[in-house]
Structures are given as C-alpha cells and as structure tokens.
Design a protein around this nucleic acid. Structure first.
Lengths: 354, 354
DNA sequence: CCGGATTGTGGCACCGGTTCCACAGTGCTC
DNA sequence: GAGCACTGTGGAACCGGTGCCACAATCCGG
C-alpha cells in the first residue's frame, strides 16, 4: 500500500508538493513535477479516490437508475452513458430500480442518499417529488432521461407528438380500422412514456374522426416485450370481425411480437395487416419494420454531457447547446419516421369487407 | 452536512460510542444505542462511505466487467448480479469493457487498479494474466464468469460438452449434413466460449464420422447477434447443392437470425432445415427453438455469492456448496437440452437428394 | 532600488469516520 | 475479599489525501 507520502519522500519533496504535482493544481516547477511523477511511477503509486473524495466532496462517480437492462432501448441508453462517463474519467454505479416496492425505497434511502455519487441520471422512471428531493437536497443534481424526476431537468423525445405522427402515417395510407397496442401501465401512470404515446395515438384518431379498434375501450395493453406483443397480438387479431387493418405498437419489441402473432394466424404483413413500431430497434431494418426512430445511445451520451456540465466539468465540447452551456431541456430529443415494408395501404379486400 | 460528531453531541456520547452504536461493533448498552439511533434519525444523519472505506479498506462495491450490455445473455447476467449485490448492500460499478484496444487498458490502469472496488466479476471476457494480476496484486479477488481471468477462479458451463450434446441431438435425429454457425472469433481466441462450442461440435462430428458442411473449412463464423446469424445464414443456405439439413448455432440470437434467413429463402423450419441454438433465450419458447438452456441470471447470483464469500461476507446461505464455504469452481454450471419444434428428423426428400 | 506581484515549497489542519487503548464499574470465581 | 473477565465509555491516533497559510525567492514596474 503506497501512499502519497511515500512518493513525496522518494522525490524529496513534501506531501503537499507531491499532491500538487500529481493533480496539476497550484504551482509546481517543471523539474519538481517530473521528479514526483517519476517517483510515483517507480513505486506504482495509485491515488486513493476515497481519501480525495473525503476532502473534495467529489467522487467522480455518477449513479444511473434504470428499470430494465434487458430491453433494447434501455440497454442502448446504458451503453451510451457508460462509454461517455468512462471517457470523462467517471465511474458508473448501476441501480436497476424496480418500478416500485420496498426494494425501491431501499435504493433511495440506503444507496442514493449516501455520498457515493456526484449526480444521478434517472432513465425511464418516474421519481416522485419526495424521491427526487431526497437526492437533490444533498446537492446532487438529477437528470431525467425519458421519464420524470420531480422538478429536475428532463431530457426526452416528444412521445406524444411522435405517436401522433406514427398514427397519422397509418391514416395517411388510408387505414381507418386502427388499433394501438399500448405499453402496460399507459392507463394508470399519467406521465409515463406509455401514457404519452397512447395520448398521441388518440390525438391523431380524434382529429381524423376515427374510433380505435379492439380491446374494451379501443386500446389493448401489452407488456413492452416481444412475448407481450405476441400475446396481445393474438388477442387483438383473433376475431376476424373486429380485426384492425393497422396497428401502432408502443414499442418495436411489441411490434415484433405482433408480427409473429400475425404470422402464426396466417395474416400477411403488410398485405393484410400494417404494423408500425416505436424506438428504432436494431432489428427493425432486418424485419422491415416501419417505426419512429429515436437514438437511445446518443440520448445517453447527451444525458452525460448535461450532467457533467451541471457538475462544472469541462466537456471539451466547444459548441454548447445553449449560451449558458447547458442543454436546452425544453427542446425534445430527435425522432424521425422511418418507413419500411411493414406498412402499406389497406388491401381492397379488407376495405370492401368493411 | 451532518457528521457523526453531530450525532454524538446530540446523543450526549463520544464519537467512538456513536460509531459503535451505529455500526454494531463493540460494546454499547442498549439504552445508549437507542439514544444514538434516535439522534441520528432526528438530524437525518447518513454515514459517509468514503470516510469509512478510508480506514476499513472496504468499499462495499464490486466492479463488473462485461463486454456487451445489449445481448440477452449478458443483460441477464448483469441483472442477476445487480439484484444480488443490492440485496447484500453492495454497490455495482459497471465497466463495459471492449474486447481490446486502448480503452481496455485504460479501464485496468485507471479504474480497476484504483481502490474503489473490493472485488471484480469478469463476465464473458478473457483477461490476460497481466490484467488479472494487476487487480489481484492489490488484494482484490476476481471471479471469472463464462470466460477466464488469468488463474482466477472460474465459473462456467461446460461449453464444449454442451455443444457436443447439441450436435449429437441433430445426429441422433438422423442428420448427416450438419453445419455449425460459430461465434466470430471461435478460430482465433483459443479459450473463448465460441471456441469451446466449436470444439464440442467438432468432437461430435468426428465421433460420428461426419464432415461439417458449409464454409471453407466446414464452419461459418457469425457475429453473435440476430443480424449476424441472418447474414451468415443467407450465405450458408444460399446454394441448394451445399445446403445443410441441420444447423447448430453458437447462440440463440444467431439461431433466430438463421430462422429468419430460412424464412426469407423459403426454407421451412424444421421441415427442410433443423436449427438448434444455445443459451435458452427468453424468446426461444415463442419461436419454438430447440436449444441448450443455461440460466444467466442464476449464474450472476452465483458469481456474487462466490465473491461475497471470498470477501468473507456472511451470505446467510446455510447450505454452502462445498465444505469450505466456497463454491466448487471445478463443477460446471447447469445446462440442459430443451427440445422444441425447430429440430426434427431430416425429410425424405432432402435425404434422397443427398 | 524598493515594493508588490508571481512562483514555488513546506507545515499543518482537516475531511468523517473506525479502532486501539486506557480506564471505570460490575459481577463472578475461588 | 482479592483477582479477573466482561461490559461500557471516552480520548486520541489514524486512514490518505487536499488546500489554506506562511514564507522565501524571483521578477518587474516605477
């Protein structure tokens, strides 16, 4: 266990000079710095971040709260965050936060409130005001990515507008019997991504004067996974009489499940059924899925940039997004409609049947 | 910023007594403990892990090195690790380690060598002896899960034996024209999972006196992703003359890609082509994929248990795996063959064509 | 040539805990 | 009743750095 005092002794300087030489803060002559650095290398000195954090109050560590790891969107975000933090010399502490329950409270009380992280990035979760305040009161900024965290700055796409766009794409193609496979929870949690997408769907339908097809109140909920989409798809497509000619799925994973269900039922996509997804999943191209593309990896990087700026870290980015150097939290993140083979105009046969 | 001295003052005791009362170490009367705990709660005291780590040398933090996040197997492992660590009060610091390159060196030199983590779990990577030693020399145990880390203890399935079993399943069904879609790198990195699976395939083929079909030397390599399997599948299945009747894919994701390629080419699975995968992917059931199932989530928990034992942490597990309380690193982790609809006996037509 | 600014260095307190040691009181054994 | 183990508590050193302050030397402007 080599300490900085060992380095100092070997280099023939005081602890403070050694510290200045190694951190680059304060005045040190070039000659002295060289000697200290050499001494450190010679004995394999590695600074203790703990000791440094204790006095500086900075940990060079960012906490990431994320509800799922094994869903494509979240995995991409996490990868983007990880790479960017690493490049800036920050560690990433992962909290795979369940949506609710005692485990969740524990994460806040026991983990996040402690002084281990400098900031928190909350991905795709809705933190209550109390939860957010618990962290912020301790001087740690929070950035919400695709969710909310009390009144903390929020980076997100325009889910509602994009969902509306997706639905309008189907309407423009001539579909009138359109269903929405909403993400589970779209009805309950008012501010969730699922709820926004559902609202956007309803916006477009209402404006076009169309009634949603399927389900009890016109919308079927599905777990945001491929099997979830499959099950909901079987349910929705099971009865020929009430079958829609087009489906807007709340995520690409749901859409893949629907396509699988359609295949199982012998329904041709897009011949008999058009499907549009949401996310821009990496498999969307291979399966020819029309979708609303967003870029989760880039969003992760973006969130890290924002956090580092809040921490006053130089980001080396000489083109700040706004004059004050902070990103414009009001501007939604980029999305675009990518039209592929899974959507087309409704077939004459089906139109006639209607 | 409340410190333990504030708690001590409020409770009318000394710092040391407050510390003992809160950590539960050493003698404190029940009455005093109660007063201290109350005082702590009253002022919202939260201990600084930094300060504690500085003196105890323990960080209650485990580093996880993992090459991919967005591949099913790794995502599952990560989730399993995360939950288990959290339940034991440990933090998880994530290092999304690329397979090689300067970033990789940086992770070792800059991050892992520092004193931030108590131990390292290396998932699906092959750490060189030098890399492993760099960490172990600092007194931090390493556990390798499904990879290697110098001479560190290793938890893994029997990839070679399981691959052999998968291949034998195809042979038992009567297939003779069998191809293997190996994971990219199976040829180069000798100790990789891909290489073991490839070897197991060759074991079975050799024993049955069969020559592998397809590719230059009888094996086609694929990225271990769905698109990777799709591309390799198109290539392998493109020429009717050399087309195999069965494929053993090195991962389920490759297998899904192959099935998609077969669909594109109009080849029925399993009618014309049998496919067996490897991993037990959560979508395998939905797609009727025969596979070698392993349980990555459980493996992650298992690795954490092993690490906590190495750290001398009581795990509350009163049924240790071996008498010394450490898992049996020589016994391979569980796998089993799960037969579903994607494999069957070769059709007469194809047999005749041969 | 003098005085203030700048550069370079060492000493020391301090961050917030843990732990060792000393000491006092209590209960028990012989 | 002496001796000892055990319980309970406070004082102080210490973990490994950082940063403030004092001090010396050099530089530069007027």
């Amino acid at each position: 266990m080599t300490a900085i005092s060992d380095v100092a002794r070997l280099a023939g300087v005081s602890k403070s000079t050694a510290s200045r030489a190694l951190t680059g803060r304060g005045y040190v002559s070039e000659e002295t710095r060289r000697r200290v650095v050499e001494a450190a290398a010679e004995i394999g000195y590695i600074a203790s971040p703990n000791a440094a954090s204790l006095v500086t109050g900075r940990t060079k560590n960012v906490g990431v709260v994320i509800p799922f790891i094994n869903r494509w969107f979240f995995g991409e975000v996490l990868e983007g965050i990880e790479r960017t933090l690493l490049a800036s010399g920050y560690d990433l502490t992962l909290y795979n936060l369940a949506l609710s329950g005692p485990e969740r409270d524990r994460v806040f009380d026991f983990f996040l409130a402690r002084k281990r992280v400098d900031a928190v990035i909350a991905v795709g979760v809705d933190l209550s005001d109390a939860e957010a305040e618990l962290v912020e009161r301790r001087g740690k900024p929070i950035i919400a990515l695709g969710g909310t965290a009390g009144s903390a700055p929020r980076l997100a796409i325009d889910d509602r507008g994009a969902a509306r766009l997706a639905t309008e794409h189907l309407i423009d193609l001539g579909h009138t019997r359109i269903a929405h496979l909403a993400g589970a929870g779209a009805g309950s949690a008012a501010r969730s991504v699922q709820a926004f997408r559902r609202a956007g769907f309803l916006d477009a339908m209402r404006e076009a004067g169309l009634d949603p097809v399927g389900g009890e109140d016109g919308i079927v909920e599905a777990e945001m996974t491929l099997p979830g989409g499959y099950d909901a798809g079987l349910q929705l497509l099971g009865h020929p009489a009430t079958r829609p000619t087009a489906i807007f799925a709340a995520s690409d994973e749901i859409a893949f499940g629907v396509m699988r269900a359609a295949e199982r039922l012998g329904l041709a996509v897009p011949g008999t059924l058009s499907v549009i997804g949401f996310d821009g999943h990496e498999h969307a191209e291979l399966f020819g899925l029309t979708t609303i593309e967003q870029l989760p990896g880039a969003q992760g990087r973006f969130a890290v940039d924002a956090v580092l700026r809040l921490l006053g870290e130089p980001t080396g980015d000489d083109d700040p997004l706004t004059p004050d150097g902070l990103p414009d939290f009001d501007r939604p993140l980029d999305t675009r409609l990518v039209v592929r083979g899974s959507t087309t105009a409704p077939s004459g046969r089906v139109l006639a049947a209607r």
